[in-house]
Nucleic acid binder design. Sequence first.
DNA 1: CTAAATGCCTACTTACAAGATAGGGAATGA
DNA 2: TCATTCCCTATCTTGTAAGTAGGCATTTAG
Lengths: 152, 152
Amino acid sequence: MISNKAKYAFRALLAIAAAPVGEAITSAEIARRYTIPHKFLEQILLDLKKAGILDSRRGKSGGYVMLRPADTVSFGEVLRIFEGPLAPLPCLSRQSYRRCEDCVSEANCEIRREFGRSYDASRQVLDARTIGDALTNTPFGTPLPLDDRRAG
Amino acid sequence: MISNKAKYAFRALLAIAAAPVGEAITSAEIARRYTIPHKFLEQILLDLKKAGILDSRRGKSGGYVMLRPADTVSFGEVLRIFEGPLAPLPCLSRQSYRRCEDCVSEANCEIRREFGRSYDASRQVLDARTIGDALTNTPFGTPLPLDDRRAG
DNA sequence: CTAAATGCCTACTTACAAGATAGGGAATGA
DNA sequence: TCATTCCCTATCTTGTAAGTAGGCATTTAG
């Protein structure tokens, strides 16, 4: 199961990306719409801003807007911000590889091999599908700019 | 990341399944071979026994053997024993479905739709590949008896 | 100019689960 | 009969999720 934090982040991103261009959405509005604890959501939006995904304006008529286009923000990228590496085993993560402590031979590890298959399959979806796709029903398979095809 | 508990379970199952037929492997032997805390491993093996996957003999020359053939025990089944539902969202689990609390419309939920894709992809691997496959390098795609194609 | 609205930042709390550790009971076979 | 093995339950420690809380900083409408 993904964390509430991540799920709230997706709710927020989808709401912000769906807004008319240039129109900022406040954290209070999102919190109200999805019954998310407001202060908790604020932290999440802040994380998304620090990650370079959102931009914000303060004061009256402030709020959040997309910094990058929604179709360059993949589900995998967002998930990694809040959950860390998505790999089922440390030895399968490309971003933060770590050898398993009880590992005898990585090359011959059946567990690694089988979970590698599974991880590949799910990563292929998560890193390919974007917030923009999700909103516009872009058919699955549409390629992404290379920069956004990172692994975790 | 999967839990240590689950990983240890796979180590143990693979070791037991790889042993000559009828030959029991002790928990101590597995613990030693993979540097797994012995008492911790005992609990895990007990869980696998209660799940009907392993059988055991006590006393001298005791140990564990497979109760069911290794090629009927899928990675997904084992994982569910130790991790609970594998679904990334409660509303995607077939075994223990739960509506998301912040859900407005399940049918129109973009998060559910996208994670559904990803989950399908990984489940297809985890529920198809078995301990037996992993040991014998059975090519991916070999079908399983229907009983073992359960979802979580 | 100022006050309300909004985002920004940090500290804290609470509940639960992972990952063991510990101790002993029960069966088995040499 | 006793060493060996599995069986069962309780306890501990640590970390993290999920949220609460309080206040500062910035912007802009009035």
